[in-house]
Structure formats: structure tokens, C-alpha cells
Simulated scan of single mutants.
Amino acid sequence: MASFQKRGKTWQYCVSAKPKPIRKGGFKTKKEAQVAAAEVEERLRKYNNPRTTKILFDEYFESWIDVYKNDIGDITLNSYRTTLQTIKVNFPGRYLHEINKREYQQFLNDFGSDHAKQTVRKINTHIRACIQEAIEEGIIHIDFTRKARLTGKIESKRPEEKHLNYSESHILLNELYNRKERSIGYYLLILALTSGMRYAELVGLTQKDFNFELNEITINKTWDYKTGKGFMSTKNDPSNRVIKIDIETMKLFKEFFNEITPNSYDLIFVSPTNPNKVLTNEFVNKILKKTLKDLKIEPVTIHGLRHTHASILLYKKISIYYVSERLGHASIDTTLRYYAHVVKELREEDTKNTLDLFQKMLLLESATSEKFVQNKMK
């Protein structure tokens, strides 16, 4: 049974579902919300019926998005919608139970012939998560995505691997801090590197989000910097968080607030000339690229600074649980997946340290025993 609520000038529906209710707003009238809610309820009835076996792949994937991805941001949601279109093009009229591993692998091979491996990986990740749910619901019994081999036309680094190392980030941070004339874009770069925030979170910050007494920043919204729709929700519930920031950075921003152009949204990284109100991703990337080039460091994007932040924390043996919370990941599994390359290196180091530890303990035990025997003989 759906319920409806008016929020400001628009309507929102809430449909009871497991594991959590499905909510969606932005409807101009209550009637529009009722029609949309009825469609969701119909999908739930169809896919929760254990006797239903003939379910179209694209229809199930669309339903899965509505049920399990209803609380993600628009940018991420569009990524899932792109995968849905790919499924519609490549599996038209195909039922879930009819698809086998060979057919799915052929799809990945064909798709990868003219797409980057990174894109193939993302498509497979989306589909695999959906198929796992279909198996748990008893709709199908075989995971046709299991052990799928990922192919791709371009062997480029994964985005999370494009980050600065500790030495490079140290050089960059000092360069950004020591600039005598620092434009607003440099302030954003400093905060990106010291906080690990997503770009939409950074440009969605207001002065009220800064607590200078506790050196904390509250992250509870984003700004739609691509279309200029305004404030949006964060990527997921764990993305709503409060993070600690170092004292020097907070001091810097306390002074910077005196220079900010007043605006009706109380935004920090405002751009009066941009119709979307805030600094564009392209503008900031241009500043970052030039700065790194001057420092003779291989360029990364602004998103690469988020990965740099996380990688540095992990290299410095900061708990992966804390890193996951600080980044606002949905779960620690996300952190492990994104930073598997870092975790692998740390695991190798931990293995060596573990072996060294017990080797030293055994040598110490041997030396102690020998000394004990010598004392007894005396």
C-alpha cells in the first residue's frame, strides 16, 4: 500500500517493500505520484510471485533499479539507466532463465570490442548485482555472470588507480597552500585532497556546514553541477556524514569565508558567471592539470584526488573501516573493491611483517632457552 506526501510544491510516494520502502518525489501533482506508485507496486507483485519464471531481463533490471537503487544520486542513477539501455539493445525479448554463461560471455566480448575495459567492468558489476538478487528471489538458479571474463578495447588504468602517491600529494598540497595569489579553484583542490569528498559534495557545501570549533564538516547534500537543478541528496545514506578536517585547512577556510561572494544559496564554491551557479568540473580540472604539470607530476583528475586521499590513508595503515566511513561508501565491500590494488600491497607487507614477527619470537625463545641451560650448568 502506497502513501503520499506533499513536500513543498511537489508530491512524493512511499511504497512498502523489503528490505526498505521505496520513495520517490518531484511529482507535480498527487495524481502523477499515484500513477508512478501503481507501476512500482505492479512490478513488486509480479516479481515477488514465486510461480513467475518468465521474466524479461530488461524489465527485471528496471524493477531492480526501482527497488534497490531508489536512494542514489542522479549521476549514479543515470549510470544504471545506461546499463538498462545496453540490456535492452543486446537482450531484446530475452527472459532471465533463458540466458546462459556462454551467451552472456559473448555479449561481454562483443561489447568490449569497441568499449573501454573500464566500461565493460561497470556494466558487468551492475548486471552481476542484479542477478544475485534474482537468484535469492528464486527467479533463476544459475548465475550466468559468475567467472565472466572482462574484455575491453582500451587497457587504461581504472579510475581508482589514477592517484598521486604520498610524495606527490605532499608536493601538491604544499604548492596549493603556499600560493600567494590563490583563486577559488585552489581552495576547492585543497579541500578535495584533505577531505576525500566527491565533487558534487564539495560544490554543495555551504558556510553552515563548517564547524570551526570542532574542526568538522557536515556532508548531507550535493549540488547538481551538471544541470544546475540545485541541491540534491547524497549518493546514499552512508554518504550523509560528519568528517574531521585538519586545523590548518579549517583556518584557511575561516579566512576564505570573508572573500566569498554572497549568494542566495550560501554556496562556497560559487561561480556567478556559470548558469549552474558553481565551479565547473572542467574548470577545476584545468587548474589541477596545469599545477601538476608545473610540478612535473603526471596529471590526475579532481576525482583522482579523492582516490589519492583514500590511498594515502590506507598506505599509512589507517583502518579500512574508518576510510570507508570517511569516504561515505555504502559498505566496506565497496572500499575493498575500489582499493584492492592498495590492499593487495598492504597485505604483502603485512605477510612479511607477520613472518618477521614470529621469526624474531622463535629466535628470542631459542636464545632464552640457551641462556637458561647455561645458567643451569653453572
Rank of each mutant, 00 (worst) to 15 (best):
S3G: 04
H341W: 03
L96W: 01
K180W: 14
R43W: 15
G328C: 00
C14F: 01
R347L: 02
E298T: 13
S156R: 13
G328V: 03
K122R: 14
N236L: 08
F269W: 10
L150D: 06
L305P: 15
Y80S: 03
D58F: 11
R102K: 15
N285W: 11
E370A: 14
A38D: 14
I320W: 00
E213G: 07
Y95G: 09
H115R: 11
L214W: 03
A36K: 10
P159E: 14
L355N: 06
G230T: 08
P238S: 02
D333C: 04
I190P: 02
Y68W: 02
Y166E: 13
E259P: 01
A134W: 01
I142A: 01
F283M: 05
K208C: 07
L56M: 14
N240L: 07
R45G: 08
C130S: 13
F4A: 11
F91T: 03
V67Q: 14
R81L: 12
I245T: 08
I171W: 06
N375C: 07
K20M: 07
L355H: 02
R158G: 10
L173K: 14
S366E: 10
S183C: 12
S113H: 12
L188A: 15
T273C: 10
D237R: 13
L357P: 04
I131M: 08
L84C: 11
T222G: 08
T194K: 13
S331T: 15
Y186L: 06
E155R: 10
D333K: 01
R45D: 08
L188W: 11
L191A: 06
N274L: 07
A200Y: 03
M1R: 00
A310P: 04
I260L: 14
K122V: 09
K360W: 05
E348A: 01
N48W: 00
Y166N: 13
H97K: 04
D266V: 08
H170C: 08
T82I: 11
I302F: 12
L357T: 08
K376E: 08
K277H: 13
K317C: 00
E216K: 11
A33K: 05
V120S: 08
N258V: 15
D224V: 07
